[in-house]
Structure formats: C-alpha cells, structure tokens
Amino acid sequence: MVQMGVHLSDVPTSLPPAEHFDAVRRMVEAAQEAGFTHIAIGQHFLYGELRWLQPVPLLARLAADVDPHVRLATNIMVAPLYHPVLLAEELATLDVVTEGRFTWGCGLGYRPEEFDHLDVPFKQRASRFDEILELLPRLWTEDEVTHHGRHWQLEGVRPHLRPVQDPHPPIWVGAQALPGVRRAARYADAYACSPEATVAEIAERHQVVMDGFAARGKAFTPQPVRRNGMVADTTEQARAEFARVAQGRYVAYAQTGFDAMDLGELERRFLDTVADHAVIGTPDEVVAQLTDLATRLPVDPIVWRPGWPSMSADEVCAAIRRLGRDVVPGVRELEARTTIEPSAFTTPTH
C-alpha cells in the first residue's frame, strides 16, 4: 500500500501566531480524517513576511492530536545550524513524546542569511551536515561517545537520552543536487525527493541511493517523495487555481536560487514550466498521474502540499478533504515497488 502525507505550509506573518497554530491543528485533524498517514513540516528562521512554527515543539504538541498510526516528520530541518548534542537530545525527546512516531527529515539549507543570523559559516554547512549525520546515530545508540571532528569535539560523553525507536528515528535526507543525494545514500535511511524533480530525475537519484545502500549492506525500500498539485472539477479549473496559489512561491524560490527552474519562464509560462512535475487535474487525472509515478518508481509515502501562503485555512482544509475523498483511496490501492521501472529514466508522467 502506498501511503500519502501532507506537507504543511508557511503562512504570512499578518496571521497572528495563535491563529496560525489553530489553523495547523485544523489541517492536521482534516488530514487524518482524510486518510493521510504522515504530517510533515519544514523549517526556516527569520523568514521575513512568512512564518514557520518551529517543528520540534510543534510536532511535540501535535502528537497529542493525532491517531497512533499517523507519523510526524520534519521535512526538512536545517541540520547544520545546530550543535549535534543539542539536536540529538531535542530529537530523542521528540521521539519519546511522539511515542516512536517521529521521522527526522533534514537538509543542508540554502539561505545564507539564516546562517549569518545564527553565526554559522554558510560555506561550512556541508561538512557540518556530514559530521552531524555521523555523530547523531552514535549519540542515540552508544553508551559512551568520543568524537574528534572538524567542528566538534566530544571526549567520553555518556548520552543520557535515547529515542523510543530502535535503533533511532528514520533519517530522511532531502537534497536538490546529486552531491546531496549521495549524502543520503551514505548516511540516511531514505532520500526525501523534492517536489520539483521530474520522474527521470527521481529515477536517477533513486539509483544513486540504491547503489549507496548496497555498498553499505542496507536494504533499499520505497522512498518518500513530495508532490505539488491541484485537484478540481475540471482540468482548466485545476490549472487556473494552481497558478493562482503557487506561482508566486515558485518565483520566490527561483529568485533565491533554491531551485534551478528558469525565473523568466516561471513568470511567463508558469503552467507549461511546471508541467513536468506538478500533478494537476480532475480527480481521475490526478489519481492516474500518481498511479503512473508509483508504478514506475519505488515511492512511499507521497507527501502532498495542499496549501500555499496565499490560501486561507478554510481553503487548505477543503483541499485536504477533497484529496481524502477523491485521491487517497486510489493511491492506497497501489503496491509500493522496490525497484525502478527502466522507462522511468526517460519517460515523464504526463
């Protein structure tokens, strides 16, 4: 069975934080009623006119609201901004509080200003990330840890806090570029694929992960993948609505250099530019596209972004309920595969 999750969005800072939290709780309630089994949230600091509620305390609170089968995930936390001991203990506590339902999705970070604000050298983020990925499993599983790294030194420390999950929470490493995919293959339990990746790009990345896991003697399992999209009564309505709510954020991401999509094309020909990855259409069309994705690639869960900063909480909840009614049941009927269909390397979904 292929599972589906929701990726919660950032919101404008014009919405008071208490109302933001209330909206998140409403969305989570709608998502679990709709049959989604993963709740994921990202992270940024000092994000200007938009706000993320910080994921560790938020997910700890949401653990009291969700059913036992629903997993809570960070997708992603900016790992290099943390000291590894602080991060290991925060996340172990979160795993305890969620009763072993936590997945740690982490990434490199791409906003230099966040690193500047927190006095962490932006150019060191890759080496810091690698060192964290080496050190955290040790802090979660070993009785005594000695570590002499480039950035951190630990001498005979005795961790006092272990996660509930054995040996530790699943680690998803997210990345846009192949060096980051190789990092996931080397250190992680899964590669969390970004929503802008095409089927051929996902296939290439999955092959890298598969090869890296084989070199580690680690079994390859279906991998999480994010998708952006829109469901409506007609294809034309879905296209128009997706352009209305999502084009501004795609343009903003391109302006920061977060993704390699062409800024001019996003502004001039948005729907044509995103057609190679966005899942847009009627319920039947969306189910068909996700079915094609899951029958070509080893994906599970599919994490869908139902909301954008331009949408109200009511609109997001309505989108979640529609997905639950019209899309989730069809996806759940699919069997997750563990190999890559050869045609995936060259054939788009639509």
Results as ranks from 00 to 15, higher is better:
Pro137Gln: 15
Arg125Asp: 12
Val120Arg: 11
Asp143Glu: 06
Ser127Lys: 10
His117Val: 03
Arg128Ser: 13
Arg128Gly: 09
Arg125Cys: 11
Ser127Met: 13
Pro121Leu: 06
Pro121Trp: 03
Lys123Tyr: 06
Phe129Ile: 10
Arg138Asn: 10
Leu118Gly: 07
Glu113Thr: 02
Val120Cys: 04
Val120His: 10
Phe122Thr: 03
Ser127Tyr: 12
Glu134His: 12
Pro121Gln: 05
Lys123Leu: 07
Arg128Phe: 08
Pro137Thr: 13
Asp143His: 02
Leu136Met: 13
Glu134Arg: 12
His117Gln: 08
Pro137Ala: 15
Trp140Leu: 11
Glu114Trp: 06
Arg128Ile: 08
Leu133Asn: 14
Thr141Asn: 06
Pro137His: 12
Gln124Arg: 12
Phe122Trp: 04
Leu118His: 00
Pro121Asn: 02
Asp130Ala: 14
Ser127Ile: 07
Leu118Cys: 01
Glu142Pro: 00
Pro137Ile: 12
Arg125Tyr: 09
Asp143Ser: 07
His117Trp: 01
Leu139Cys: 01
Val120Glu: 07
Phe122Ile: 05
Arg138Tyr: 10
Leu133Phe: 13
Thr141Ser: 12
Phe115His: 00
Lys123Gln: 04
Asp119Ser: 01
Glu134Tyr: 11
Asp119Trp: 05
Leu139Thr: 13
Glu131Asn: 10
Glu144Gly: 02
Glu131His: 05
Glu144Ser: 01
Glu142Thr: 00
Asp119Leu: 02
Lys123Met: 01
Glu142Leu: 01
Glu131Leu: 11
Glu114Cys: 04
His117Ile: 06
Trp140Gly: 14
Phe122His: 00
Ala126Phe: 13
Leu139Arg: 05
His117Tyr: 07
